[in-house]
Structures are given as structure tokens and as C-alpha cells.
Design a protein around this nucleic acid. Structure first.
Length: 424
RNA sequence: GGCGGGUUGCCCGAGCGGCCAAUGGGAGGGGACUGUAAAUCCCCCGGCUCUGCCUUCGAAGGUUCAAAUCCUUCACCCGCCA
């Protein structure tokens, strides 16, 4: 099983760089290896981009290795310069602390923390970083770092060219190296995984371990997810696709995957799916033979949504997706099905007895557009629909007769942006 | 510390006293074609009680009938010199 891990990861395109491959293979095959990945609290929630790395972690655990999920309570206070051409704004300690909590509970969904000896464990680098004084840090850790080497790191040198870097962010790699050393010492953790932008930081840890402990450890990086059209993975019009259901609804999450480009679906399946290789290859084939059916996208959406939001929630949103996109005549849906589907959408209520607002006002109220001007524009551009029927005229207002099952209106903006209105 | 240059709408970037809600590109949105895909083409893209009004061009004051455009102070950035 283990011996196939690297080969499988390779096939999935999940290996960017590793330290000595032979050594790593040997170590992975000989016994369960402790490994870690760090997640810095830079937002209230993890997003689909993080999922790539989390799922690699899961693959390692499934292959018998022991994950340490590290939350960056300390590093999150400092800010990683990697991949940024601008200094970060420091976040308040209380905010970071809250984000640490959020990230912890999200990570718990993807790893097994309960099965005795092989269980994953959680760690927070604030636990060992906070007690260290600045003087101790400079003398015990800082002494092992050459500024020349630190400056040579991509994350730093690119910043030197693009406007500079503060001492705070410059120190980031030292902090992360300290984490690796600490985990090596206390848990004999000998492998660190991360996105490919983390290579420099990870290697800084390896160097530190070599200098202080005279021992070697491993680094493994995962390619950054890229879309075929060059745009950034994990972003939609509304911003990032978050794992938190309050920030990205499960319905929107499902839609994100359903709308995957044909050109990307093969890559996504390999990266995100836990289906076996033959099943994935079969799905890839369906994209070539009958792309219009979008079977691969559907399977992908189903699997990832189930994993992140649970099978029940996934079933609900998929039903909603099918109901709302399946047919033109919404009134043909029975009330229960429609109600369940609409519950997944942004919604607004209107009170019985009050006059019906205009379509423009309703759409603006759902938050699907930012302003009434934007809603008006949609009408003008012929992208406004009520119950799947195109409407015209900026002052168009629905009437009682438009209510489906006496309660619902379905607003649509363009081809696929839906919202619901309920009479209460 | 001295001298010079900069700060414009989501991003990049023109404008340098009235014709400016502000050229152009990108991102984004709508339409056509499709498959809730991509590419392509067309249109749109500050807000509102929308033939008009309101708020924007780093911040605050000022000059003027009129300022993104001129002046003053402040903040931040970038160069060159020390």
C-alpha cells in the first residue's frame, strides 16, 4: 500500500518537488512516518485551494502515515511573504485566535483524529513560539541562519525587487523552520508537506534540523493548482470558494464544481477524487465521448460536496440543482421539492398583504447583485427572468398570479444565477 | 537629513483648470452560439427617488463662476544624493 503512495501521487500530478526521492521512498515504506502541514489563519475559513493540500494529507494518512495538522497561531500573526508582492496587514491577535479555532474544526473533517495509534493530531505553533523570548530566539535559533541565504529565497528576493519587505515578514522563514525543528524534536516528525510556494520555508527547516540535530528530514511540495485558462483556481465572481457553509453555501459550492471547464476536469478528478484510478479514467473518457452530459463534473461535484458538507447536504443541493436547471416549467415541480430546492438559494421574503416590490428591488434585496442599478442593467440587457420567463421593463413587478404554489417566485439573473422569493 | 517623482474607479493605467462619472486594457456582468463548458462576436460595467440628481480621482484646508487637474499642510510609496 505505502509503496504505491508516491506512484499514485505522481500519477495524480501532486508532486512538485521532494528531497531525495529514494530516501523518502525508503522511509515511507519502512514504517509509519510522522509528517506535518501548516495552515496559517489568514482568513476566517479554509478555501478550496487549501483542500488540495489537505487531501494529500489524507492520502498520506490512508497509506498509514501519521499526520500532524499544524495551525499557525504564531506564524499567522507574522505573515508569510511567499507569493505576495506586498506586505500583509497585521491582524489582531483576537481575530487570529478565532480563525485558528475555525480552521481546526474544519481540518477535523478531513483527517481521522480518533483511531488510536494511527490518529492524526493537531498542533498550534503558538504553543511553543509564544514562551520563547526574543533574546532566546535570536541566540538559539537566529544564530543558525545566514542572512545571505535568507535573502536568496524567492519569497524574499522577489519582494526586495517589488517594494521591500519588513523585518517581520523577513523573519517568517525562521519561524517556520523553528516549527519543523520543534516537531522533529518532540514528535520525531520527519516530513513536511506544503504547496510548492512553501519549498523555501520547508527547506529552511531542514537546514535548521541538520545544523542543530545533525539529522536529515524530508520535504515534499505539491504543485499550486492552476486552471487551463490561466485564471486563478478557486475563485468565482463572488470571490473565493470557502469551505465554511456560511461563507459559501453548499449549493454554491456544488455549482462551483459542476461548472468546471472540460479542460480542467481531468486534473481536478486526479487531485480531489478518492475514486480509484480505473474509475477516474472512465470518467475522463466520458468527457471526451460525451462532454455535454458532464458526467465527470457531476461526479466530482458530488464527491467533493459530500466530503466537505456531508452526504445529506450534498443530496439536497444536488436535488436543487437538478430541479432548478432541469426544466423550464418550475410549476411542474411539486411544492416540497421546489421548497427544498429554493431553500438552497439566496432568498428574500415578502409579507402577505403588502404590495409586490419590483423585480429589480427583489433581486437587489437577495444580494445577487450589488445595487439596484446593477439589477436594472440586467433587465435592460435581457438577462432578467421570473420563474424562468424573461421579463422586460425596469418597473416590472410580479403579481399574485406569478406565485408558484401560492408562495414562491424564482428570480434568475443571466443563465445560472438564481434567487428565491417567498411570500410569508 | 537633502533633492526629485508619485498616490485616479475591483486591478493596471491615461487625464493635468470647464466638453470628466473621468480615455485604454484586464477582471467582472448580460446577450448570441452551446452543454449550467471553452473559444468567438455584440453590449454593459459608481450610486439613486434616473431625460435629472448625488458621491468619487491619498487626507484635510484654500484659490476660482468652475478643480482629478492650481496652492498649503499632512500621510504613505518610489528614486537619486548624504
Amino acid at each position: 500500500m505505502t509503496s504505491q503512495l508516491l506512484a499514485d501521487l505522481e500519477w495524480r500530478g501532486l508532486i512538485a518537488q521532494t528531497t531525495d526521492r529514494e530516501e523518502l521512498t525508503k522511509d515511507l515504506n519502512s514504517k509509519p512516518l510522522k509528517f506535518y502541514i501548516g495552515f496559517d489563519p489568514t482568513a476566517p475559513s479554509l478555501h478550496v485551494g487549501n483542500l488540495v493540500v489537505i487531501l494529500v494529507m489524507r492520502r498520506f494518512q490512508l497509506a498509514g502515515h501519521l499526520p500532524i495538522a499544524l495551525v499557525g497561531g504564531a506564524t499567522g500573526l507574522v505573515g508569510d511573504p511567499s507569493g505576495r508582492n506586498e506586505e500583509r496587514t497585521l491582524n489582531d491577535e483576537s481575530v487570529v485566535e478565532q480563525w485558528v479555532g475555525n480552521i481546526r474544526s474544519q481540518l477535523e473533517r478531513f483527517l481521522d483524529f480518533n483511531s488510536g495509534k494511527s490518529a492524526a493530531v493537531m498542533a498550534n505553533n503558538l504553543d511553543w513560539t509564544k514562551p520563547v523570548s526574543a533574546l532566546e530566539f535570536l541566540r538559539d535559533i537566529g544564530k543558525h541562519f545566514s542572512v545571505n541565504q535568507m535573502l536568496a529565497k524567492d519569497s524574499v528576493s522577489s519582494r526586495l525587487e517589488s517594494g521591500g519587505i519588513s523585518y517581520t515578514e523577513f523573519s517568517y522563514q525562521v519561524l517556520q523552520a523553528f516549527d519543523y525543528l520543534e516537531l522533529y524534536r518532540r514528535d520525531n516528525c520527519r516530513l513536511q508537506l506544503g504547496g510548492s510556494d512553501q519549498w523555501g520555508n520547508i527547506v529552511a527547516g531542514l537546514d535548521l534540523i541538520r545544523k542543530v540535530e545533525s539529522r536529515s528530514a524530508h520535504a515534499f511540495t505539491i504543485p499550486l493548482m492552476a486552471k487551463s485558462d490561466g485564471s486563478k483556481f478557486g475563485k468565482t465572481a463572488g470571490g473565493s470558494v470557502w469551505l465554511d457553509s456560511e461563507m459559501t453555501s453548499p449549493y454554491a459550492f456544488f455549482q462551483f464544481w459542476i461548472n468546471t471547464d472540460d479542460a480542467d476536469v481531468e486534473k481536478y478528478l486526479k487531485v480531489f477524487s478518492f475514486k480509484d484510478r480505473s474509475e477516474i479514467e472512465r470518467l475522463i473518457e466520458t468527457v471526451k465521448v460525451n462532454p455535454g452530459a458532464r458526467e465527470a463534473q457531476r461526479e466530482l461535484a458530488r464527491e467533493i460536496t459530500s466530503l466537505v458538507h456531508g452526504a445529506d447536504q450534498c443530496a439536497k443541493v444536488e436535488a436543487a440543482s437538478l430541479a432548478l436547471f432541469g426544466q423550464g416549467d418550475l410549476s411542474a415541480l411539486d411544492e416540497k421539492t421546489l421548497a427544498a430546492a429554493l431553500a438552497q438559494l439566496p432568498k428574500v421574503s415578502i409579507n402577505k398583504g403588502e404590495a409586490f416590490p419590483t423585480w429589480v428591488d427583489l433581486l437587489a434585496a437577495t444580494g445577487v447583485v450589488d445595487s439596484k442599478s446593477a439589477a436594472r442593467r440586467i433587465v435592460k440587457e435581457n438577462g432578467a427572468y421570473l420563474n424562468n420567463e424573461k421579463i422586460t421593463g425596469e418597473d416590472f413587478a410580479p403579481t399574485k398570479a406569478d406565485l408558484i404554489h401560492g408562495r414562491f417566485l424564482v428570480l434568475r439573473k443571466g443563465k445560472r444565477d438564481l434567487a428565491s422569493v417567498e411570500l410569508i
